[in-house]
């Protein structure tokens, strides 16, 4: 059953990722982007990291996607007109993909363990955040505050 679920989620995620990357209509692409993150969150659920999946949905679908659609709305005059599409990017992307797959298949040292979910509990994450990773946590707090202030300063209108 897990492999069926896996295949379904994989197809779902990749289809929406392609839609987000190539759909010429901005708003549809942004919404596909949001749906793609639901697929990635489902992967995290499959891999036993429920907390991360939920955070992913919370941050990306709830916040980042809303930010993106608002930005599209605020720059709407530009959204309608045609933007260019560089085919060079497609070549590079396919090249990178082929290279990565080749590297993955050639590597022998990868653990070939069977798929056994070892779920992580919220409590473990919380304990680690408050003991081992407390300094990174503080840094992220400062970074988020700085980003918040920076974003506000950037979009603030100049005084007339």
């Amino acid at each position: 059953m897990n492999s069926v679920a896996f295949a379904v989620i994989a197809i779902f995620t990749l289809v929406f990722a392609v839609a987000a990357a190539t759909n010429p209509r901005l708003m549809h692409a942004a919404l596909s982007f949001a749906v793609m993150f639901v697929g990635i969150a489902a992967f995290f659920f499959l891999l036993g990291a429920e907390f991360v999946g939920l955070v992913q949905i919370f941050v990306y679908v709830g916040a980042v996607a809303v930010l993106i659609v608002f930005t599209i709305l605020l720059t709407r005059r530009d959204a309608e007109e045609r933007h260019g599409f560089k085919w060079g990017g497609v070549v590079v992307a396919i090249g990178v993909f082929v290279g990565l797959v080749w590297a993955i298949l050639k590597t022998n040292s990868l653990p070939t363990l069977p798929y056994l979910v070892k779920a992580v509990t919220v409590k473990e994450i919380g304990t680690t955040l408050m003991t081992q990773d407390v300094w990174p946590l503080m840094c992220v707090g400062v970074l988020l505050t700085a980003a918040l202030i920076g974003a506000l300063v950037l979009v603030m209108e100049d005084e007339p």
Partner: peptide, 10 residues
């Protein structure tokens, strides 16, 4: 790769 495509082509 899809992300790379979006970042490079669009």
């Amino acid at each position: 790769s899809i992300g790379l495509l979006a970042a490079l082509s669009r």
